[in-house]
Structure formats: C-alpha cells, structure tokens
Design a protein around this nucleic acid. Sequence first.
DNA 1: GTCTATAATCTGATAGAC
DNA 2: GTCTATCAGATTATAGAC
Lengths: 213, 213
Amino acid sequence: MRSPTDAPENESRPSRREARRRQTRAEIIAAAWLLVRERGLAGLALRDLGGAVGMKAQSLYSYFESKADIYDAMFHEGYLAFAATIDELMAEIERDQPPGAEVLRRIAHGFFDFCTSDPVRYQLLFQRTIPDFVPSDESYGVAVASYEQFTEQMAAFGLTDPEVVDVWTALLTGLTDQQISNDPGGDRWARVIDQATDMFLAAYAPDLLDTTT
Amino acid sequence: MRSPTDAPENESRPSRREARRRQTRAEIIAAAWLLVRERGLAGLALRDLGGAVGMKAQSLYSYFESKADIYDAMFHEGYLAFAATIDELMAEIERDQPPGAEVLRRIAHGFFDFCTSDPVRYQLLFQRTIPDFVPSDESYGVAVASYEQFTEQMAAFGLTDPEVVDVWTALLTGLTDQQISNDPGGDRWARVIDQATDMFLAAYAPDLLDTTT
DNA sequence: GTCTATAATCTGATAGAC
DNA sequence: GTCTATCAGATTATAGAC
C-alpha cells in the first residue's frame, strides 16, 4: 500500500505524494467555490468542477468520496476562515482593554463583512438550505468551536447571559440577512450597523456606551 | 373556442370551466407546498407533483406554463398569506389606540410565527435561494405592497425614519432566521422576542415603553 | 384536458484498462 | 491517478392521439 518513499502518516511532515494530493484537493475546492458563486450552491455539477481543474468528473472520486464530501470540505474550509476572522477580532479586543463600544461596533462590521462578502459561503455555513447535506463530525466540530469562541468574545464585554447572546446573534444575522436578500451588493443595512450596535449596548451594557457622542 | 354556457371572461362571475380550472390550479399548488415541505424547495419534481394530484406530469402544462410558473404561483399565494397576516396585526393596532409596547410585541410574535411555522415558505418569500427564479411583475407587486403595509404599521408607532425601520426588519428577520437555522422546531429565539422588542423600543420609542414592569 | 411517446439533457457514480 | 465506457436514473418540456 505505502511506497518506500512515503513517510508514516502520523509524522508531522507529510509525504510528497500526500502533499501533492492535498494541494490538488485544495485546488478542487477553490474551483468549487468559484463555480458555486456563479451558479448557486445547489448548482454545483461534478462535470463542470472536473473541467475547471482539467480533469474528468470521474477523476474527482480519487480525491473525494462523493459530492457531499466536497460540500463538507467547503463547509470545513469556510468555518476555518470564520474562525480566523473571529481570531482577528479577538485580537482587537485584547488590544483595547477594557473593551469599549467602538470595539463591539468593529466586531459587528467584521461579522457583517465576512458574511456579505461571500453570500454563498454564508448560505452554506449558516443556513440549512442545501438538501441532504449534513456536515461530518470533524467539520461540525470546527463549527461548534467557532461558536464557543464567539460567546467568549461576548464574555469579554461582560455579556454572559445566554439570552442576551442570542439577541446579539439575532441582530447580527438579521442585518446580514437583510443585506444579502434585499440589497445585494449595496450598503443599506451596512449603514445601520453602528446604531443597531448602540441600541444593543444601551440595553445590555449601557456603561460601555460613551455618552459624549 | 367558448362554449355557450361560458360567461365572458371580463365578467366578475367566472365560467364554470374557469372556476374548475382555478380549483385544479389551487389543488396543484397545495400539493406542491406539501411536497416542498418534505423534500426542500429545490427538490420539487413535476413527476411527483403530477402524481400527488392524480395526473401525469405532462398534464400540469395545461395549468402552468413551466415549473418556474408554479414557483411563481406559490410565491404569489405566500405573499397573499403574508398580507393577510399583516392585516390581522394591523387590526390589533387600531383596536389599541394609541398603540403601545404590547402591540408591537404581538406584531413581532405574529411575524415570527408566520415565518417559522413554514420555513420553506419563508425561504421562497424572503430569501433569494432558489436559482433562476424571478417573480413575475404581478407577484412582485404583491410583495411590494406587503412591504408598504409593513412600513405603515411602523408609522402607526411614530417610527418613520427609514433607517429605524431597517433596524426593526433586521431584528425581526434575525430572530426568525436564527430560530429556523439553529433551533428548528424549538423556541430558543421565540423566548427572546419580547426583550428584543423592548430593546428596540427603549432606543427608538422610549415613551411607548411602560416603565412599571 | 389528459394521455402516450419521446426528445434532449443533465445528474452522480462505478468498473476496469492503463 | 487518470482515463474510457457506461450505468441507471433523474430532470423539464414538446408533439400529437384521443
């Protein structure tokens, strides 16, 4: 099964074959994102995807078990990107201790921009609209970890009540959703993020709100 | 073309043939809703739909020009139901003059319940997730009229600033969206509607908020 | 208005040669 | 790992008999 030049799987440095395989997988996923942005999430066809990376559709099965497996890889990658975005925003919080209203506003913009910059990704990650797709345990784990990171963010502002966190997530996804659905490419709800954040702060953390402005 | 028993088309009373045709169309649409709730919005197959009403798929073309035409009829019917819901809530406002916080809370619950009671309908009406479907001018008109009715509702509370209305719609759709996506069938975000409404009122119409509770 | 027949096309997936 | 060949099925839609 394993050629002499291959390193054992549990070693940190992957074999050259493994490395190339990974790269090809990444290429395929990248091409899938492009296609999906053009023809919609459900419109992904393996024929087109194969063509986009210069191989026949059947050859994709050397890299992925099924079409659902491809969606899962996209889901996984999407949540890694989401986690990275949260990390960046987390760094902003730590830079500004104790965190004030301006940081929460930037967090709101960060989430909003992440979502609206790629509506199809938003659809895959946050909505349950693609039929019969259930993320694998591993991918789901990344998703759960992201959410926990998110609640940690809120805790940094002293907001630990789960119901308050739910109001905050509802507010953020609502702004995002309206932007994507009713003003795609525009900024109608982007313009309203700051005052929505202040509305939230006024109700749940009024002491963080600078009353001078 | 027209049998002697048929009334002219422009008369208010439709001919018996027209009446039956309409009824069959309504039956087809009703069956389509059932199917779509089971297999997803994009999973609607004309074969199944024909079977569900006891005819071959091809015969559906006597009632609808295309599959998109069927989606359009569903979209139309969905917005009529939405308009009816708004009307009911509007009646509540008029019953309680001047309208107070409790009425706005009931409006929020009304919208929330309308959406979450039928997630597929919500997807068709309020999200742009079904590929290549563009509502006809007539159906779109019903949708626009509903939105105008909605803004009138807000005006009854003295809330006329378009940006404030946008914050309100974001809040409502956010609660709805989170409920559908992250706790389908549950009540996690339903439980938080009242405090979210009060948060909104405190920021934009504090005088409506009863401070006793 | 409903049917049969069929067109024309797309789909994901497998077997096996090389 | 990539290919050819092919399966087995789905899809919407049209033509024409009755």
